[in-house]
């Protein structure tokens, strides 16, 4: 029983960054822009959040101040949004190959934080540990970060926005058939910019969760593929918020299981860690239900 509860809470914690990122990716891909840069956006957000909190702590004399982690969260979200904007400008304005520009961002996310860390902390792989983390919320037998609650509450919100509001309808139209949407008077370009920046903001929040919620410092490449798993969850969840919820819970569970199995005698953790990736490939091949992307995804829009 205790193991089951520990596994449940671990699943929630592992699923949160995936869920936040995948919901963000949902906006981007539903608008027709492939966002392979989610991984990089998480890392940029995580670095910005941890560094901001650390700098503020230094300025405030190392005390626990309630607003500091929130400013860190804001910094992470803004940084994610900024990186999203770069991807958006490349993909929408300059009609770049969206995979290529996304890859560029992912590569930058491995290098750029290190340069800043080197200047601030004279070390290229970690930031200083922070004391001001995002608050935890007690949930029965355990407690989780407040962002975990936020992520799960976001699912119905995203569902409602996407399927019950005019804005959501327009977004989906832009991703399915931009020309038709344009004739209906929808500003395709603006919709796409909004969607991609929004996905960056959510990925940045996921990064902040990793660096100042789940852990208390930034570590180089700490996302460890979370952005790609989120992308996989998006496909697995058939570009639908509820499907995404299910997929991220499954992948989160696989990760929690891998942690739980560490040193146990059931299965080697290194192999269980590969599970989400294998599952995704099976889904893509159509072994576990077909998944159809938005029709205009990945295609630059030309007026």
């Amino acid at each position: 029983m205790e193991i089951a509860i520990a596994l449940l809470f671990s699943t929630l914690r592992q699923a949160t960054p995936l869920l936040l990122t995948a919901l963000g990716g949902l906006f981007s891909e539903r608008s027709g822009v492939v966002n392979i840069a989610l991984e990089g956006m998480i890392l940029f957000g995580a670095a910005a959040a941890a560094i901001t909190v650390n700098r503020l702590e230094v300025a405030m004399g190392g005390e626990v101040v309630f607003w500091i982690p929130w400013v860190g969260l804001l910094a992470g979200a803004l940084m994610g949004g900024l990186v999203g904007l770069i991807h958006a400008v490349a993909a929408i304005k300059y009609r770049a190959d969206q995979i290529v520009s996304g890859t560029a961002i992912n590569i930058a996310a491995l290098g750029a934080p290190s340069i800043v860390l080197q200047v601030l902390y004279n070390n290229t792989s970690t930031s200083q540990e922070v004391v001001n983390r995002l608050p935890n919320v007690s949930l029965g037998p355990g407690s989780v970060s407040i962002l975990v609650i936020f992520a799960f509450l976001l699912v119905p919100v995203v569902w409602w926005v996407l399927f019950k509001t005019p804005w959501g309808l327009r977004l989906r139209a832009v991703g399915e058939h931009p020309e038709a949407a344009e004739t209906m008077g929808i500003n395709v370009i603006r919709m796409r910019y909004t969607a991609v920046v929004l996905s960056g903001v959510l990925a940045g929040i996921a990064g902040a969760y990793l660096s100042i919620g789940f852990l208390n410092q930034f570590i180089r490449a700490m996302s460890a593929g979370a952005g790609f798993i989120a992308l996989a969850a998006l496909i697995f969840g058939k570009w639908h918020p509820l499907g995404v919820l299910g997929a991220t819970l499954l992948f989160g569970f696989a990760q929690a299981l891998a942690i739980q199995l560490q040193g146990g005698d059931v299965l080697p953790a290194t192999l269980v860690q590969a599970l989400p990736f294998i599952l995704t490939m099976l889904v893509l091949a159509g072994f576990i239900g077909r998944s159809r992307p938005p029709a205009a995804v990945g295609k630059p829009y030309d007026k």
């Binding site: 560029a104 961002i105 992912n106 590569i107 930058a108 491995l110 290098g111 750029a112 290190s114 340069i115 860390l117 080197q118 290229t124």
Partner: peptide, 11 residues
Amino acid sequence: ISNQIIQVLQA
């Protein structure tokens, strides 16, 4: 200066 600057230049 961290040699990660090469990574950034590549990106």
